[in-house]
Nucleic acid binder design. Structure first.
Lengths: 343, 343
DNA sequence: ATGAAAGCGCTAACAT
DNA sequence: ATGTTAGCGCTTTCAT
């Protein structure tokens, strides 16, 4: 049996309340002499406070629930999530919060998800790139659990911390367009993910604004992984794509796509330019390094975490924020061949 | 105020115990009619069980604490930990356990660590590549908290799930030796980490067994990161190393070391062979891909997790296991120059 | 200044 | 078959 404050009280022949106040340093004052005796007894008995019991009374667990996208299989193996989790962990650390990571949510089991989130173990939740159903979103809002979202939020009420996807995509497109590219293809993310939607939308919008055609067969969806990118690229080649620039929705896809392109005997960037998004470590160490858009994922996630803690502590709903993105030009993009041939 | 079983009991004019038994499907039988009414009322009132309250009675939280190495700064950015966490998460998922990830332990604050681990929120703990003090180890054992260790355990009593570091290192060394290498350098991990120690030990033992000299200046310690490897390699070059084979304690180090080597104008593998350890994704996508040793980290971590759950459930202490490693020959290793010149 | 006692929401032993 | 009640370990109100 673990040592409790009652044991300390019994040993010192004082009441549990005095022990509690002594241990917590308040709110009721305790004479220093008594406090010292209590602290010493605690040390002697090897007493450790039971936070579960405490949190039942205070209603606070000082623990934050982290909900990664339900679609992702190996959460910890996704570079994007790694950075997001890193940001959350850093901020949680600074704010003295612990983290429960919910990797157990089956795709769309709203009930189970709410059950876990509302079982009293977490003070609030951070959703990372969620794809929540209308129903889940509504119930969540109704539950009153403080929530924030890394990436675009599923509904108005939830504070959202996201990168400027549109701006970032515009930067890459402008870069490629200026290099002389006129035939583009887009390897898009899964259509349930808001960031994927935003990036695809910006891709199309840019082409429209320049009067460049954007046939449906030049866009293909895939998983946000190297395999996803490799497969999507293979599909583009199968369709006889003549694009000189392949714009990918994230870096892993770009790495996979480049692999397929190179395996097909084409050179990057001489024959085909490829771009990514997110500036994941992979895009920097492949040959050639991939031109990409950096977004401050760690910072975004940290900001979301701070906002959540503020929300939990009763401060008013924090404002959503959109974080700037930056173009990172590397060696996977160059002027297209035909441009070189027809000056 | 959240809905409780008391609300359901009041609404249906029955006792809380009946509600509890109905909700949990036992252990006391409840007539089907009553049960249905309870379940319906629960749905209507939007009742959600409070697991904190439950775990206070049952003494079980169905939650596992995960303790990454205290040294690692950005836990989620280390490929090794990513895979270990993945394995833990997979198994935890299968076994219906949640995860609290303790990223908050300051280097050596034993007291704080024990406080968190023993505060009632976790049923047991998984230590990943820990570097625990004698004191922490002893207190932990005394606390009775079920614990297992991914990598070599800090003491006998704790079941350990680790790769065959010695065997793996022997495989690489044998490979390099057979290629003709006779001058080796080792980029070792931090001397607090048991895996690092084991790999270094096996490196030295192999050379000894072959009668190959192993001067102290041919071994340099570094962080288990690309930067660590790059720095260590630079140090080796500064020392005027004439090694033809650089054996690194992990893949990130190898990637970093290769970067330094290439930046110095040397070719891999023509001028220098480089090997890694762990088979992290990075080692496979750099140019040239790096010869490495694969260890089944995900499987190891999953086995540790299953063992922990068994331990929590009162089964006898599971046996420690050592997992086999495999040599993965890629393009970063070749016969040394001098071997080609002097046949 | 300090003790006694009422819960937090739940399970389970004890009664009926 | 089902209701009553005693806690789990703690915080906090109410007495003293």
């Amino acid at each position: 049996m673990a040592v409790t404050i009652k044991d300390i009280a019994t040993k010192l022949n004082i009441s549990v309340s005095t022990v509690s106040y002594a241990l917590n340093g308040g709110p009721r004052p305790v004479p220093e002499a008594v406090r010292d005796r209590v602290l010493e007894a605690a040390r002697e008995l090897n007493y450790r406070p039971n936070r579960v019991a405490r949190s039942m009374i205070t209603g606070r667990s000082h623990t934050i629930g982290v909900v990664p996208p339900g679609i992702t299989h190996n959460v910890f193996l996704s570079p994007y999530l790694q950075h997001a989790l890193s940001g959350v962990a850093n901020a949680a650390n600074d704010l003295h919060q612990d983290l429960i990571i919910f990797t157990r949510f089956e795709a769309a089991d709203t009930e189970a998800m709410l059950g876990y989130l509302l079982d009293g173990r977490v003070d609030g939740a951070i959703f990372i790139a969620p794809s929540l159903s209308e129903d889940a979103t509504r119930q969540l809002a109704a539950s009153g659990l403080p929530c924030v979202c890394v990436s675009i939020a599923p509904h108005e009420g939830m504070p959202s911390f996201s990168p400027d996807n549109e701006g970032g995509m515009r930067l890459v497109m402008e870069h490629l367009f200026t290099l002389g590219h006129r035939r583009f293809a887009h390897i898009a993310g899964r259509p349930e993910m808001d960031d994927a939607i935003a990036r695809r939308g910006a891709f199309e919008a840019f082409l429209r604004s320049k009067g460049v055609p954007c046939p449906p067969e030049s866009i293909v969806n895939g998983e946000f992984t190297m395999e996803g990118g490799a497969l999507a690229m293979a599909e583009l080649l199968r369709r006889g794509s003549e694009a000189t620039a392949i714009v990918c929705a994230n870096d892993e896809m770009a790495v996979g796509a480049m692999h397929t392109v190179q395996a097909a005997g084409l050179r990057v960037p001489e024959d085909i330019s490829i771009t990514g998004f997110d500036m994941s470590p992979y895009s920097g160490i492949v040959q050639p390094p991939i031109t990409t858009v950096s977004q401050p994922v760690i910072e975004i996630a940290a900001a979301a975490t701070s906002a959540l803690v503020a929300l939990v502590q009763g401060q008013e709903t924090p404002a959503s924020r959109v974080f700037p993105t930056e173009l990172v030009v590397r060696a996977s993009t160059a002027r297209p061949q035909e441009d070189l041939l027809t000056p």
